[in-house]
Design a protein around this nucleic acid. Structure first.
Lengths: 110, 110
DNA sequence: CGATCTATATATAACAG
DNA sequence: TCTGTTATATATAGATC
């Protein structure tokens, strides 16, 4: 979408805020879509460095969904790490070695 | 993206699972992008009806991010409902008035 | 199920006002 | 900052294997 950007922190403060605002809207929109269409309870929370908080929840009380997760037995939580997150973690390790995020991400998709 | 679908629960079980799987991947990918590019801590949790759990967190321990939110004073949390969520809620009310069956599902969850 | 392909629908970076 | 436009990059429904 739009011109491609590197997978690294946006240094320009204004540009970073604009990007955050736009992407947050899209993210929440999609969270709502998956919640409705796939009938799942979804909760999303984001803390910005400046202390701002963004959240979305498909139910009335986000606390219930979040606590439902936190209250799970530890071993149950650990077994539910998604494959996608595993891939992301693998990517981070590669990034650390080669130091070029955008190139590695391209490789990861192959 | 792809052929448009209605904003209502996908009745076909197989189709619903496929859609959930695809959209979850995209959602987590975007959550990671906004976390990195905008330097924010993000947490995402989803409970499917069948009991499956999906999560993503930009930090090592998702519990920390979720609890960080839950532990906020109630009034602080309430003041941080995003404008997008407000719009979604307003949309639901309008939908209710118009009586579109597929949109009534929103209200049921409230 | 999971992967891949293709035609569309969306998302969005850069820009303009 | 906020809104709107536009050119591109992504996401994804449906189909097929």
């Amino acid at each position: 979408m739009g011109r491609k950007i590197d997978m690294k922190k946006i240094q320009d403060v204004t540009k970073c805020q604009v990007t955050f605002s736009k992407r947050r809207s899209s993210l929440i929109k999609k969270a709502n879509e998956i919640a409705v269409c796939c009938d799942v309870d979804v909760a999303f929370v984001a803390f910005s460095p400046s202390g701002r908080i963004s959240k979305f929840c498909s139910q009335r009380r986000i606390e219930d969904v979040l606590r439902r997760y936190i209250d799970l037995p530890t071993e149950r939580r650990l077994t539910h790490v998604t494959n996608v997150q595993k891939k992301l973690e693998k990517l981070r390790q590669l990034d650390h070695i080669k130091g070029d995020a955008s190139k590695l991400q391209y490789l990861e998709k192959q």
